[in-house]
Design a protein around this nucleic acid. Structure first.
Lengths: 232, 232
DNA sequence: TAGATTGTTAATCGATTAACAATC
DNA sequence: TAGATTGTTAATCGATTAACAATC
């Protein structure tokens, strides 16, 4: 309101919070956790909460939580705390979950099948609008209430459904070409489970989940523990 | 060999690379990607490679790759490049994959079932040694060649199998108590898919994968794109 | 008013980048 | 030798932390 920060420092990528400041990507990565913490707090019947309580639930420090929330705006009251419903609404808006996002899943194998049936997706602001697979044996079957469509129709499915986000659970060997097709069709966010790096244009966002890599990172620490063990 | 850096700067957590320096956690997080890149290079038949080629495959810059590898040691030759087989061996050792790590999976639902059958786990230095579930209808069934054991036997299963790493795919409501039991039984690394923060003692490492959170992060950028769109 | 709790500042810390000397 | 490419340095950048003034 006071306009002192009106010379907006906007990030190169245009990810702007209140007042036009960019929200740091590390902060963006923690917002879903804060939203979960707020939902749990609301479910417990609380109307007010504090940075201490939310931080405890989210597994961060109170200082970090307050700093992160400050990039979105000033939604608490000093000496009082945060209104649970109001803050929840603000974080929801900040994350772009005020509108439902349409998600397309490509690759209906073991993992794709499990993800298509994962209730958490629908419960948290998304709607699965399409399933695509290259295997003729899978095409035409119904999974999670949707009929699997052929990979050749990928562009048409994106156009028809208006999907902006895709989940990629294909073999690594075809991940890049499927990703290219998704991007060409207009998808701007890709969540990939394929164990390979994906190249995308700057306007597209990729998040990669690789189960084996996560295990390897755990193995690193396990090794360090065994090898270093004992003295200190 | 020259001992100049023998006044080892060891990280507080004891995660030491060559010469006792700690390997930064950001670097550790990229090592699995480098290992994948090396495997792809080896599969293509190359004996020598360069930071340019590896970085391209891993999706990072050559400077970052060289910096990361420098924390492990000096395994390249100036003016020449890296020996693929040798570097692969060194990264494997650094990640603690020289010995096979035993993995226990808790929660054999949709997702747990898919992960148990995921070939990538066995292919990358791990062996699945046990499956545990609380549902009497699931206990006793065979999945991925293993008989599912009851949750009450969790400690005994950890002891019998010698598992040091656990994959947690239970409902969020029981994730913390299962995690506590795993830690009490001696597990030192947990990969959780439950959408909630887990509290563990300092000697235990947790990696959290939350599909809905990943989608929400993509939604943030999608929103920023629509809202900010147009000018510039 | 006194106590509580936020939002912000400033200091610290860690990660990334670019350039280049070392060296094959 | 000349060209190539690493390993390292130093500068920059971004993230975290701690303290506290603002304010309810």
């Amino acid at each position: 309101m006071d306009g002192r920060r009106s010379a907006a420092r906007r990030g190169a990528d245009g990810r702007a919070g209140r007042d036009g400041q960019a929200v740091p990507s590390a902060t963006v990565g923690r917002l879903p956790g804060y939203l979960r913490a707020l939902e749990a707090t609301a479910a417990a019947g609380a109307v007010l909460t504090s940075s201490d309580e939310l931080a405890e639930r989210a597994g961060v420090t109170p200082a970090q939580l307050r700093k992160d929330l400050s990039y979105l705006g000033s939604y608490g009251r000093r000496g009082v705390g945060y209104d649970v419903a109001h803050l929840r609404e603000q974080v929801t808006v900040a994350l772009g979950l005020a509108d439902v996002r349409r998600v397309l899943l490509v690759g209906v194998g073991n993992l794709g099948h499990a993800l298509a049936n994962y209730a958490g997706i629908a419960e948290r602001g998304f709607v699965l609008v399409g399933l695509v697979d290259a295997d003729p044996a899978v095409v035409g079957t119904t999974v999670a209430g949707l009929v699997v469509e052929p990979a050749d129709d990928l562009a048409a499915v994106v156009a028809r459904t208006g999907a902006t986000i895709a989940v990629l659970t294909t073999p690594a060997a075809v991940a890049q070409q499927v990703c290219d097709a998704l991007v060409a069709a207009g998808v701007v966010g890709v969540l990939t489970f394929a164990p390979c790096a994906l190249r995308v244009p700057p306007h597209v966002d990729v998040r990669a989940v690789d189960v084996a890599s996560e295990l390897q990172i755990l193995a690193f620490h396990d090794r360090a523990r065994s090898a270093g063990g004992g003295a200190s």
